[in-house]
């Protein structure tokens, strides 16, 4: 079955590019552009994986993890995309329960590998 991914990224160009690449590899990708939309999306859908930018309007990546882990009580895998100089946030993200992280500038092939790896490790 095809895996469904949620991509939360406020930069439209980047998100469209990543979506294109991921779709090409056989994933179904839904894109949201801010934290609010993530929440709305998660009410009705259950993706197999969330890829989220750490800096997003309305809700940061950290808050998103917190929301998924603690409010939704879900073990949904999450990959965080962080920008340079944000090492501290990455640590926080891992502490909160992120499954993996990717640093900006993003290398799409790397993203693919990480997505595949995280999905493989998740118990079905």
């Amino acid at each position: 079955m095809e895996k469904r991914l949620l991509l939360a990224e406020d930069d439209e160009l980047l998100s469209s590019l990543l979506k294109y690449r991921l779709t090409k590899s056989g994933y179904i990708v839904d894109v949201v552009i801010n934290g609010k939309q993530v929440k709305e999306y998660l009410v009705e859908n259950t993706p197999d994986l969330i890829i989220s930018d750490i800096m997003m309007p309305y809700m940061s990546g950290i808050e998103l993890i917190d929301y998924v882990r603690n409010t939704l009580n879900s073990s949904l895998p999450i990959i965080i995309i962080s920008s340079a100089g944000n090492e501290e946030n990455v640590l926080n993200a891992f502490e909160m329960g992120a499954n993996d992280f990717l640093s900006k500038p993003v290398s799409p092939p790397e993203l693919l590998i990480r997505v595949a790896r995280v999905l493989k490790n998740v118990p079905v």
Partner: peptide, 15 residues
């Protein structure tokens, strides 16, 4: 503009 903007967010082979 689009390419310049994207170049800031991409790395590796894609860049």
């Amino acid at each position: 503009e689009v390419l310049v903007e994207l170049s800031q967010d991409l790395s590796g082979e894609t860049l």
